[in-house]
Nucleic acid binder design. Structure first.
Lengths: 207, 207
DNA sequence: GCTTTGACATAGCGGTCACTATCTGAATAG
DNA sequence: CTATTCAGATAGTGACCGCTATGTCAAAGC
């Protein structure tokens, strides 16, 4: 049986519900296309509740910008851990991640695109986006560094650069898979990573 | 001295000016954020002129979707031709293309992101976007095929797949360069392509 | 148990938007 | 020269939106 909630608890719950509804609605309609009434209704509240928890539509949006990528990152890390990261299977698991993000979590890619466009147009929030991206890139650098070490990659190659390339590849493939799934098979991301890491080793052996 | 324009000529000119203004405005404000009055004014006309040339805001947007990528493609092909495509310099030239698209033609990336989001949300226009993308990918496949042949790549590797990877890499790097230019140097795209093509050769030598 | 507080609901205000009905004047046709 | 057509201007119209002022009722404090 459910304990009676305190005021602070219900407020926190309302906030979380509003954030979830906002993520769904912004992803489906865009920042300007989504109305605050729509968001509040999707969460089961009124606009009054929304403005009692967030100072403006933009503030709600920016809070998502800081939050959601962290959520995704945690889920991805968990999935990778569960399937033997640090082994040769990591590449296969990254392929599965591509499918997850492109096909299942259809909100994520759309939201990130919204964030990017918003930051391009409102330079004052670009720092926040850059920080959010940097956070996930640092996690990725751990994986990439491990992969390079396992494959005996040389010292001359910059882990940050390789990570940036891997992340760019991922984003580009997710986007393309939403346009034409036939062009981006589930294995293509893993395949491309194999080419990339093989090439890194081979290229440095020459120079 | 300027010849007196016929009605058809002035109308075509008005249409073109409206399309240009629409590209600028949609890129800067987004599809929902840009108003038709804003677009018409930027072109030096009234909303009446706009609705006399396009049936709706959406029709104007969709016309850009078909047009603008072709323009970009033509400019890119010209730039590549001018700097010795088909030689080893092609990779360096592709690096320059990255800088052009990311830094100078700031409209292009934003517009493409708008198109993608719009197509995601309005499945009936996804076909148009897919066709537009396929057009540029086919041009890219010519370049990629030539690069692979020059480097003596094996038969077992699918040109379409490699092209998709190259395009994805490009899009992802442009996006990241707009977030943090320091992370994506001008040479990184060319560097990544070198890794990629080197890896394609090496991987197939093994199997 | 009375008072105070504050989370959330309701209603409405000013402003903007996509789109249209109507008008004007210049290019065309005869 | 006159009549017609039509590109483009002007001036709305109804709908919607972000936000706020105000009301309500239950939890918190004493």
């Amino acid at each position: 049986m459910r304990r009676r909630l305190t005021r602070a608890e219900t407020k926190a719950r309302t906030r979380a519900l509003l954030l979830d509804a906002a993520a769904r609605t912004f992803a489906r309609k865009g920042f300007t296309g989504a109305s605050v009434e729509e968001i509040a209704e999707a969460a089961g509240f009124s606009t009054g509740a929304l403005y009692s928890n967030f100072s403006s539509k933009e503030a709600l949006f920016l809070e998502l910008l800081s939050d959601r990528r962290r959520d995704r990152l945690a889920a991805a890390a968990q999935a990778l851990d569960a399937h033997g990261a640090g082994t040769g299977e990591a590449v296969a698991e990254l392929g599965r991640l591509l499918v997850d993000v492109a096909d299942k979590d259809i909100e994520f890619a759309a939201l990130q695109a919204e964030f990017w466009l918003y930051a391009i147009r409102n330079p004052r929030v670009m720092d926040a986006l850059a920080a959010s991206v940097r956070e996930s890139h640092q996690a990725l650098e751990g994986l990439v560094g491990a992969a390079m070490a396992r494959r005996g990659a040389p010292d001359g190659v910059c882990v940050e650069e390789v990570s940036t390339v891997v992340a760019a590849l991922f984003i580009g493939l997710v986007r393309q898979r939403r346009i034409d799934p036939d062009c981006v098979s589930e294995e293509l991301f893993g395949q491309a990573l194999n080419w990339l890491f093989t090439g890194i080793n081979a290229a440095s052996d020459e120079g």
